[in-house]
Design a protein around this nucleic acid. Structure first.
Lengths: 162, 162
DNA sequence: GCGCGGCTACTCGGATATAAACTGTCCGAGTAGCACTGG
DNA sequence: CCAGTGCTACTCGGACAGTTTATATCCGAGTAGCCGCGC
């Protein structure tokens, strides 16, 4: 039960793309250099974000990734779902229907598994909290703790400061 | 990011142990037969529960597992932590300190990573919800939906009905 | 001089290896009861 | 008959394979700009 590191990478890259504030695509190599990540693997991790509609990608020379929408419209839940998939963490295998209960009529199991219900309820709280956090809010907190971050990023990447 | 099936197995076995209501240990074989699980592997899954103090085990003939305490004192969080370990699902690798930021003084990173903070907050909600659910409550829900479950279990396992 | 075609450099996307974790199995250490033996 | 002792059957616990998932890498498809050529 460990979340893929791709989630952290993806979130950081989204913030970075916004900080850079350029309209032209940013290549995987530049993004990877920002955080010392393996470029090819970062590319692979960003692909599901494109499929999820969080980023847009353009191929060829001068290609790269762009934010598909504002950080205010992207939640941590979006990023997590894009990388990890839509499946729930706890997947009830309905073992209660096996073993000595295997011969019970199906009607007995119409009521949901109580353990599954409780686990899903807890997981729902988690997802609700994730969906309540937009990347814009996360970015605001980061800038609150480290003022001048946006300017630093633009200096490092050679983009014009506003 | 998938929770091990051992969590489901462990929770079901705890409920089953309580339903059986016997004071003597119950062997892995009997528990596994209840849900059609591989006995040896179930044994392996129950071992961390013993280390966590949820179950007690006795070796030798007539050996097996017993509940170490009442279901009212066991939460889903206890079971999950026992099986999955105490580590959080999202583990921040602090990639923000690498790449172009590698030469920054450590003082810059005294403030926690904003992404990590947000992810931890959400995960905390999940764990809080898990800790609020005792196995006694889960069992009560199960009996509410399927009255007579306890009596059924005692019939199947040949233990005296109260 | 100017337009056009090919060419190169560079990018994403998916196919392909490698490492780790989860799942599943097996055998040894240890215990409780039972059978046998001796008094 | 009864106590003691050895033995057997059965259990947990951890060591040992098999399989799925995550991590990392590499090469091909495709595009944008550039260079050279022809008009």
């Amino acid at each position: 039960m460990r979340i893929s590191e791709g989630v952290e990478w993806a979130a950081h890259c989204c913030l970075l793309l916004d900080w850079m504030g350029v309209d032209e695509p940013v290549s995987t190599a530049k993004l990877a250099a920002g955080y010392g990540l393996p470029p090819a693997y970062l590319n692979k991790q960003l692909q599901p974000l494109v499929k999820a509609g969080i980023l847009t990608s353009t191929a060829g020379k001068k290609g790269g990734f762009r934010l598909a929408r504002s950080l205010a419209d992207i939640t941590l839940m979006d990023v997590l779902t894009a990388i990890e998939g839509p499946a729930e963490a706890f997947q009830c295998a309905e073992i209660r229907q096996n073993g000595v209960w295997a011969d019970e009529p199906a009607s007995v199991f119409r009521a949901p598994c109580a353990i599954d219900t409780a686990m899903r309820a807890a997981e729902l709280e988690w997802r609700r909290a994730l969906a309540a956090q937009t990347l814009a809010a996360v970015q605001a907190n980061a800038e609150l703790q480290a003022p001048g971050l946006r300017a630093q990023v633009r200096d490092w990447y050679g983009t014009p400061r506003p």
